[in-house]
Design a protein around this nucleic acid. Structure first.
Lengths: 203, 203
DNA sequence: TGTACATCAGTGAACGCGCGTTCACTGATGTAC
DNA sequence: TGTACATCAGTGAACGCGCGTTCACTGATGTAC
């Protein structure tokens, strides 16, 4: 079933597809318009600048990241905060692995207009989701003395670093053909002493 | 004392200074030449392409990263592998904080010609340095069952993520005015259960 | 129901920009004899 | 010591490119009366 969709949404969708298929390199107003079957000036009827368009794409990415973490969390025991936190790690890197181009864009402040309110809102929501998980974990004894946001920042950084370096293939030549999930399992082991059940992949 | 230096080295130096002062955005052959007081075509007498020049800059960056880690390590007990590993984390982020532009460039494969042998050599050396530290730590009981290169990859990723997100100011708005060393201390606490002495900054 | 007007998405030509790279050249330096 | 030649770093004009953005326009749609 095809749904009638606004040109605006189609532009964002086209950009997302381009990014994940071709990478971030050739992204631009003209290329997006070309792929959407529009004249090269058309996107500016919907976004005042390229930076705004890309910010909308990135915001959509943060929404997907949020959803990916939700999916991962839903596969483990709701009453086990540590398991949820460990699952969130998998959710994070799976999003990055599944949408490498968008993931790469989301943290490129030279491309996205980070002043866009939607960008800030969605980015904040994704981080807030992790902070909540951390707070719950602290309530059951996981480093309750640390500032939640800082602890969340460190966990986020670990997943972010794993995903970034893996996607840039910076780790592959030195660590071999290691898959990302295996590295996340190690990261969880270091941070949480994660149990085997936690490190299992959700189906 | 000023030392006579080759134009080639001056170009690399000029690029490094530009990157750390102005960021990665306006980098290019013409800008580097301008700052070095040369005509815009001159750099091509020393580097066949811009990508090669930037690869040389990045290679120099890896050498500095290596040195920064060495400095950090030298401040702790040589006979304590865990302390050395924890100190290495500080060395990593200090390099990134001190040379944010070069650090940003080093992992931009769209800008650096990563086929450059010097780039690969120096990058490999920096990672190898960390692997050696990990091997020593494993010898005294730190997750001896894990593959050294994978464990090193996870630790590298954590520091890389912290440095990247911090420099992009992605963490600042949500975690507050947190300084980088504080986050590294938390990361070390999670990974190593680091003692206060380890988390102290080398002077 | 019909007419006049406003709105606005989309078009396509044009502008101005800075880029990486090429090219023919100049001029200084080093080398062979 | 002097001459002829080769080398090569550096110059500056030029090429061709694709970019983001502007602008006057067309044509379809919606609205007021």
């Amino acid at each position: 079933m095809r749904v009638a969709v606004s040109t605006r949404d189609r532009l964002v969708d086209t950009a997302r597809t381009y990014l994940d298929e071709e990478g971030i390199d050739g992204i631009g107003l003209r290329e997006i318009a070309r792929r959407a079957g529009l004249s090269h000036g058309a996107p500016l009827r919907h976004f005042s600048t390229l930076g705004r368009l890309l910010a909308a794409v990135a915001a959509e990415g943060f929404r997907d990241l949020y959803a990916s973490v939700e999916v991962a969390i839903s596969t483990v025991d709701r009453a086990d905060p540590m398991a949820r936190l460990a699952a969130a790690s998998f959710g994070y890197v799976r999003f990055a692995a599944g949408s490498p181009g968008v993931f790469g864009l989301m943290f490129r402040s030279d491309l996205c207009d980070t002043g866009d309110p939607e960008y800030a809102t969605e980015g904040g929501a994704a981080f807030g989701q992790l902070v909540e998980l951390v707070v719950d974990a602290q309530a059951v004894g996981f480093h309750p003395d640390l500032v939640s946001a800082e602890l969340a920042g460190v966990l986020w950084s670990t997943m972010h670093g794993l995903a970034s370096l893996h996607l840039h293939a910076a780790l592959a030549p030195t660590t071999g053909q290691t898959d990302l999930d295996a590295l996340v399992r190690i990261a969880n082991l270091l941070a949480f002493g994660a149990s085997p059940t936690i490190s299992k992949e959700p189906s």
